[in-house]
Nucleic acid binder design. Structure first.
Lengths: 184, 184
DNA sequence: CAATCATTGTACCGATCGGTACAATGATTG
DNA sequence: CAATCATTGTACCGATCGGTACAATGATTG
């Protein structure tokens, strides 16, 4: 028997595995188990092996954030885009049950492998958020944008460390209020 | 030739290795290289292997935070203790060049192995900080304490991701100002 | 229908993994 | 000085690592 897959369907599965196990903790045998794809298929779609898989995942994540978060922040109504960001981020990270793969990669030496993609992700997020804040009339837009993105990353760490979903959503609400106060 | 070591001298070396490579990324051969200790010594001091080494590191970290951060926050003058916390944290994390091992462990599935120690670390940090904030007259002490600890963790992620030391120190200063505004 | 070619499963590779066994070493103790 | 015992270096273990080779499969194309 032979099941045929498409590369695009595999990337989200890989993302979830890397998220749970980290780059070093993700072995090809685990990938085989959880995706149902043999090594033949895996290396057919990703000739560069594990590193190419991780790069594909990072590109996929970047594309999602670009269309769902960054672009609205840059182009749409500033207040609405910022408000939408909190909602979308809460959904995307499943109220803190899901972590940010980019943030996790940044913490250990897998950062060296993907430093360009990792730096880009945060630079663009902060930049887009600063843009919206500036348009909304915030005077210290850069500092507040950094604080917002850092706050989200920190809330993810706390939520995972405490096994507490509520703390993530609660942290986002606190940040949202602070942003509202700074843009009126 | 034979060099004799003590267990207490090894733990900080192990801490630095785990910090850089993560739990899964830290192999015994890397430990051997960087500590200069052979497997014989390593398993003599830590019969439980890698897991016992990580536990020893976590206990060491906990002890340092207890005496340098938590206890002052609980017992000393609230304003002074909070102000000292920002300084000590900035030093300890080397302005963001060093990461928080506990936070990093929380993000992937090494959390399962050490969940008790990881949860404890953050519970006690937040608790001690809340205690100081309450004594200083802050009305929303719990929320602000969570925001402070999360802010530090997030700032570490950002500093590493951007390879920017300044952002960490700057984030701490922003948090410090917010705390001062809330306690007067 | 025949030929092509993307996709797959399996067998296999050397290197490294975490861990064990144990004799040699040498400081400490009586 | 002799005996003890913590500490060490080395050889070795099976399991798993990431990766390669390649024949078999089967959908797509002409």
């Amino acid at each position: 028997m032979k099941t045929v897959h498409e590369r695009a369907d595999i990337v989200p599965l890989l993302a979830e595995i890397f998220r749970e196990l980290g780059y070093e903790g993700t072995s090809l045998s685990r990938i085989t188990q959880r995706t149902g794809l043999g090594k033949g298929s895996l290396y057919h779609f990703f000739p560069g092996g594990k590193e190419e898989m991780a790069n594909a995942v990072l590109a996929d994540i970047d594309a999602w954030f670009e269309q769902a978060i960054y672009r609205p922040l840059r182009q749409d109504d500033a207040h609405q885009a910022i408000a939408a960001m909190w909602v979308n981020v809460n959904d995307y990270f499943r109220s803190g049950r899901r972590i940010c793969l980019v943030g996790a990669f940044a913490l250990d030496d897998t950062r060296e492998r993907f430093s360009a993609a990792i730096g880009d992700y945060f630079i663009r997020w902060i930049g887009a958020l600063r843009s919206a804040l500036t348009r909304a009339g915030c005077s210290e837009a850069q500092a507040l944008a950094e604080e917002g993105v850092a706050g989200i990353q920190g809330a993810l760490v706390l939520a995972r460390a405490l096994g507490d979903e509520l703390i993530f959503t609660r942290s986002l609400e606190t940040l949202a209020k602070r942003f509202e106060a700074a843009t009126r």
